[in-house]
Amino acid sequence: MIAALVEDRCTNCNACVRACPGFVFDAGADRPVIARIEACQTCYLCELACEADALWVNPDEASASAPSPAELARSGQLGQIRRDHGWNLPLDAGQLDDYRLLGPLLNEGADIAARRYASRG
């Protein structure tokens, strides 16, 4: 679930309010408020929308607990998803150059399991 909105990073741009598919945030005077957490689907897409790297989603679909802002900053996880995606890079930056490997790696995994199963004792 959405677990942290790091106040001193937030510019109150409301990008997360607009982007969240579950309409989890309400706009606020200083920053958005997490108003309907029960509608959060742990999709991390608000993190992609936040250019200030102020949001952190707990990967547990049932937990909204978060490390402290200082720990989050140290963890390197703030903004990591946006960087990993190359979300704000130009379209020709090669951010999806490995994407073609998805299908072959999936098939390779399935083959490994099938071979292992066929040769089990």
């Binding site: 990967p59 996880q77 998803i81 990993d84 951010q95 490995d98 994407y99 790696l105 995994g109 490994i112």
Partner: peptide, 25 residues
């Protein structure tokens, strides 16, 4: 541990969200 040898090296660039589900725990 039996996963394709090349997978660990590229999972982040293919599916960052999949990896986040583990890294953050």
């Amino acid at each position: 541990s039996d996963a394709p040898k090349a997978l660990p090296g590229v999972l982040r660039s293919i599916q960052p969200l999949t990896l986040a589900a583990f890294e953050r725990r």
